[in-house]
Write a protein that binds this DNA or RNA. Structure first.
Lengths: 340, 340
DNA sequence: TTGAAAGCGCTAACAT
DNA sequence: ATGTTAGCGCTTTCAA
């Protein structure tokens, strides 16, 4: 009842294990006569032979696996990305090993080391910071890596991201159209491309709409979390900041705003309009439903996986940066100011 | 610049690789003189030696890893369970390999086979059906398995679940207290323990409250999804069913109800009260916030991992079924009927 | 076209 | 306490 090995198949087919190996392997099958190849495959099937990936990996230093580095699966932005990655990899015989890092560089490094020692063939990273020594190292070691959602300051590693600038521009445009003039931007951490790009885009969009930066307010949050959004808005409110709309850098910050507005008896959107970014799961179910920039989460993952597979088969010298288009979802969280 | 192997460490310390292996391994370190053990460890550290888990796994048929079988990570019920599992395993040097099955037995079987061939030492299953041949097989093969959230018809495999019966009882009690008499139960799939147990508990609670089963209505949904909930409620509404409250078997079904009620211009809770089950992420953010039974998701995962570790070190003959307590979260989605 | 031989890096009997 | 030997299951030169 032992699991059959290649040896068993070879014996059953009356050939040497090396021949059995060649016969069973699509890439080397042509080295073997059609008859023996057939025979070996029949025996393998009859015995229920399954190659041992551990032995194969030890020999070849490969694994048919890639590492998928995620900050936190409980953030609803990431599961669809994971599914996108898996759905592209699965059909071509690869699988993804997932690690949560909690944005902790030490955990990240441990996860990467563990995966490398298991011969992963490449990585999809969703945790990139603008300056990211570990990623530089991997790039320097020619380990195939594709970034998803975030990228590096210098485009030295290929990436797939949503169009942050366009999204913010759409969002601001929408608020302005509705008559808002005093708009707050809750920016994300400035060590992340998403935080920086969205903030930059906000400033740019402000100018394009002829808005005075003095009427607006920009506040940088310490993380992309509900807690950070709440904290920052509380601070703003305590200072008596004057605004009619909040453009949150992502949905989690917007969620934090919802909480705080409710606590302060401020209605949304009657008193304050809120716009988010990402359109993560359930954001359309809030009350009021969150108006937000939709980023194609599943597609981000799928495209990152495709790029990684490409990289695996024909390494490029010149990293590609793919930017996927976003759309704007008008829902219930904005409206009022309709004045001149 | 090759990654150093045990061989390199042994050479550096002037000992045989076997001795180096013993010195480096906590369980066998005592077989080696303290001096050499120290020397070997120093050399290993100096060289930056990291054992090759693939080679080790080939030799030992172990892997310091377990398989975690999840139906779908985009269902917010599961990420916290995953984190619970990981947080318990990590500190003791184990890691979890995650697979999504989409409730597809074929995908599940493939994932399990793939993991077994990689020498996983056990499994945490979140996809158990009442009748589950694959799980019977694993149990028969003495593969350590712990079920989480759901269980089998016969308690042949250890499990950690939330207290379905108590939760449903609390929920019904709450609705009755508020004066509801005509209550619908949207039950889950009857091939899952959660679906069956909650339905059974509903019937029981009905009797305990002296309610007439004819006044109520029970409808079984085809899956634990928003779409299934919507579909089922639509059917009920089309039939002109008469009720003031819905006890949904889980939060996703409740979510589907929210959608349908809104489409039909029915207000919640003024026209219909809704109660869910699980208290998955974001359910407190809906409008109105969902009243629901809170199941300790993170703890379910953590406890399952603890049980699996136990099973790994000292296999039991008699499987334990752990039931974790639930709490009831009264929020905005219920109220009206206050009549006699 | 097939076989022989070697070895990926490690651990575990067995021997000393 | 340490070394010797063998082998986990596979792939890949090299030789025939």
């Amino acid at each position: 009842m032992r699991r059959p090995t290649l040896r068993d198949v070879a014996d059953g087919a009356g050939v040497h294990p090396a021949t059995a190996s060649r016969a069973l392997n699509p890439q080397t099958r042509h080295l073997v006569s059609p008859e023996t190849a057939d025979r070996v495959n029949r025996v393998a099937r009859a015995l229920g032979y399954r190659p041992n990936p551990v032995a194969r990996s030890l020999k070849t230093s490969r694994s048919s696996s890639i590492g998928l580095i995620i900050p936190d699966l409980t953030n609803p932005l990431f599961p669809p990305i994971v599914r996108g990655v898996e759905d592209v990899l699965g059909p071509v015989g690869y699988n993804a090993w997932i690690a949560n890092t909690d944005n902790d560089p030490a955990r990240e490094e441990a996860a990467v080391e563990s995966m490398r020692s298991r011969n992963v063939e490449g990585f999809v990273f969703a945790t990139a910071r603008l300056e990211h020594p570990l990623l530089e190292d991997l790039a320097a070691a020619n380990t195939p890596v594709v970034l998803v959602n975030r990228r590096l300051a210098k485009p030295t590693v290929p990436s797939v991201t949503a169009d942050d600038a366009a999204g913010i521009s759409m969002a601001l445009h929408h608020l302005v159209e509705e008559g808002h003039k005093r708009i707050v931007h809750l920016a994300g951490p400035q060590d992340l491309s998403t935080g920086v790009n969205r903030l930059r885009a906000f400033r740019q969009a402000l100018h394009e709409h002829g808005l005075d930066e003095n009427q607006t307010r920009i506040e940088v949050c310490r993380s992309w979390t509900e807690a950070a959004g709440a904290e920052t808005l509380n601070k703003l409110l305590a200072e008596g900041a004057d605004f009619t709309a909040i453009l949150a850098g992502n949905d989690m910050l917007a969620l934090g705003c919802y909480d705080v507005l409710a606590e302060h008896g401020l209605r949304c959107p009657e008193d304050v309009s809120v716009v988010g970014f990402n359109d993560a799961a359930f954001m359309d179910k809030l009350t009021p439903a969150l108006t937000t920039v939709h980023s194609p989460q599943y597609e981000l993952g799928a495209e990152a996986a495709r790029m990684l597979l490409e990289e695996l088969s024909e390494p490029r010298t010149h990293p590609r940066s793919v930017v996927l288009p976003v759309t704007f979802k008008v829902r219930g969280s904005t409206a009022p100011p309709r004045s001149p």
